Computed example of a mutant assay.
Amino acid sequence: MKTNRDVQIRDPYVVPVAEEGRYYLFGSTDANIWGKGTGFDVYVGTDLEHWEGPYPVFRPEPGFFSDENYWAPEVYEYRGRYYMFATFRRRDNRLLGTAVLVSDRLTGPFRLYSDGPVTPADWSCLDGTLHVDEAGQPWMVFCHEWTQVFDGEICAVRLTEDLKEAIGEPQLLFRASEAPWTTRLDSKSSDAGDVYVTDGAFLHRTEDGTLLMLWASFVRNRYALGVARSASGSVTGPWVHDEAPLFEQDGGHGMLFRAFDGRLMLTIHTPNRTPHERPIFIPVTDRGGKLRLA
């Protein structure tokens, strides 16, 4: 049995299963996530503090399109199966992309479902997240990485109903520098342009119907988590940013879920340094479409 301080993980993502009384904790679990990819593991627990595992849920099969940088798996129940959206670095062009995997069980094994990444082949993209709008149309919201565009972007693209491929061209939702709280990443800025980072988008519909987006960037070179809201209530926005980040103590890439006691919970990884990153869980209040750390 492990506790949170024993679990090295980035980009934590929790799937609560009320019928079992168990939480399934996914994330970037390779000891060195910046190098060769091993796969993804899951931890299973009942109290958000103690965890059994890790249990392997994905290991690449021969011929898999990537062998490096296995990042940010998110798992959704959709039409009776479990779909994992995860980031990989392609072998063919060395660019990052988000692919879709599938399994009949939360504990896997997950196998490649899409034909490689569903993000554009000539873009470096990461952190795809699934959003199903009120009309039942699935979308993927993802980051167009700063390594290509300097001012990192968050984009959205429609998906086929089976989640297997994208429909049409991605739509730009916003750039990192548009938020009032972000600052440039000094260590990466150059004569070619100032770097602003976008990471880890996650969409959440509040109790009053407001569509919010959590996303990560940097404040004075420290990882931070911000919130934007859709003025139209739809994924295409326009998106209006909160003035200040929700969390700025060197942690981010967050998501929200309901604990079994009914509390709305935020999980992020902190600190943003390998191999020291750990999951933390923070109660959050949702009042009038605004999130506050409890």
Rank of each mutant, 00 (worst) to 15 (best):
D261L: 10
R111M: 05
P138C: 12
G233M: 07
E61W: 07
L163G: 06
E207I: 05
G254H: 06
V100N: 06
A176W: 04
S177T: 03
P109Y: 12
A192V: 11
E74G: 10
E61R: 15
E134V: 13
R94E: 14
Y23R: 07
D30S: 08
Y43I: 06
T182S: 15
H253R: 12
T198F: 00
F260C: 10
M213F: 08
P245I: 06
Y70E: 09
I268A: 09
V7Q: 02
P109I: 13
V102M: 14
G252H: 05
V44R: 07
A18V: 03
N69L: 13
R79V: 02
T183K: 04
S177A: 08
Q171V: 15
R278P: 03
L225R: 00
M84P: 02
L212R: 00
A228D: 11
H241Q: 04
S232W: 04
D242S: 03
T183R: 07
R158C: 00
D286H: 04
F65E: 13
V157C: 04
D194L: 12
E74K: 14
V15Y: 12
E19N: 13
V149R: 05
V15W: 12
D286S: 04
W215Y: 14
D67N: 15
L48N: 08
D199W: 13
A99R: 00
S189F: 03
H241N: 05
D194A: 12
Y83H: 07
G128F: 03
A216C: 15
T98G: 02
D151K: 06
G27M: 12
L266W: 01
G37I: 12
T29A: 10
R111T: 15
E178L: 05
D162A: 07
A86W: 01
L211Q: 07
S124L: 02
E134W: 02
S114C: 09
I280S: 10
R287H: 14
P170D: 01
P170V: 08
T147L: 08
G288L: 10
A231K: 11
F150A: 10
A231V: 06
L130K: 11
V100W: 03
W51P: 04
P54H: 10
L225K: 01
K36G: 15
T210Q: 07
L225M: 13
P16D: 04
F88E: 01
G136V: 10
V15C: 13
A244Q: 10
G63F: 11
W181H: 05
V75L: 09
L173V: 13
P238T: 11
M140E: 11
E145N: 11
T38E: 15
D41A: 14
M265P: 00
H241F: 13
A135E: 15
T147K: 05
T236C: 09
V157Y: 00
V284G: 03
S189R: 02
H276C: 03
E49R: 14
R222W: 08
T129I: 11
